[in-house]
């Protein structure tokens, strides 16, 4: 039985797809068979971030409509044999997703994978609610600013009431906070909410803090999950996140402001 992880936020542009790609790759690199699904039907991006956009034949909607089998639609990653990508359809809209269809696909994936990562679209409409409906764990991606924090809070409310686990009164979804685009320097200048500010508002288990980093954009442009850039701060931060998710005790990094050292100049993103 796979563990189903939803990466969600409510707000757009906070780093859901980057996070989905990084975490899926991280889990695969640790030897877990992992599938990552793009739920953003109509605005697909995950294939670009994963660098497999030229190998898409069938997509998620084809599988839901039973026009293709799951194995036909899954794209094996070239860098890790444990990682598979199920891309979204670019030509349909989110109404193509049905609760039964998504349940069937996730059920089938659960039989052969250890982890299924669901990359949720922004918003709280059908795509987003279906992405989180079957989840066991939720990673709430939040930027350190008030509107993102509020949207995350809203998303947490939906997770607590409109998921399968909530409806069947099963053990609730495990919720984790992931702060992205964090800049300790801007926090120091009072331009950004601090980790503590965000945690006080959301009161959520902190899975990790991803520093604001040029490495993320570079990785996206290159179609390489940033976690593979193990020299970059963001790549290391995501590696920590995956380790923490798997139960390892890893101290938090990239939270305190540090003057640029020689090390920083050499390796910093």
């Amino acid at each position: 039985m796979a563990r189903i992880i939803v990466v969600t936020s409510g707000k757009g542009g906070v780093g859901k797809t980057t996070t989905s790609a990084a975490i899926a790759m991280g889990l695969a690199k640790k030897g877990h068979r992992t599938a990552v699904i793009d739920f953003d039907v109509g605005l697909r991006n995950l294939d670009l971030i994963m660098g497999c956009e030229r190998r898409v034949v069938y997509d998620f909607v084809n599988v839901i409509n039973e026009e293709a089998s799951i194995n036909q639609a899954l794209i094996r990653d070239k860098r890790s044999e444990n990682l598979f990508i199920l891309p979204a359809s670019q030509t349909r809209d989110k109404d193509s997703l049905t609760k039964e269809g998504v349940g069937r696909v996730l059920g089938a994936l659960s039989e052969t994978f250890d982890y299924v990562v669901c990359d949720s679209p922004a918003g709280i409409e059908k795509g987003a609610t279906l992405a989180m409906y079957y989840a066991d764990d939720a990673i709430i991606v939040t930027n350190p600013e008030v509107s993102s924090v509020r949207d995350s809070d809203r998303m947490l409310g939906i997770l607590a009431s409109k998921s399968r686990r909530a409806e069947t009164a099963a053990e609730p979804i495990k919720e984790y906070l992931l702060l992205t685009r964090y800049s300790p320097e801007r926090v120091r200048l009072g331009e950004m909410l601090s980790v503590n500010d965000v945690q006080e508002i959301l009161s959520l288990h902190l899975l990790g803090v991803i520093p604001d980093s040029k490495a993320v954009l570079n990785a996206s442009n290159a179609g390489t999950p940033v976690i593979l850039d193990d020299k970059s701060d963001a790549g290391q931060a995501y590696a920590d996140v995956v380790a923490r998710y798997l139960g390892e005790e890893v101290p938090h990094r990239f939270i305190e402001f540090q003057k640029r050292t020689l090390f920083g100049r050499l390796f910093g993103g």
Binding site: R150, D151, D153, R154, L156, G157, A160
Partner: peptide, 8 residues
């Protein structure tokens, strides 16, 4: 006994 979230 749990947080009451935005929108709830």
């Amino acid at each position: 006994d749990h947080p009451v979230r935005s929108g709830q």
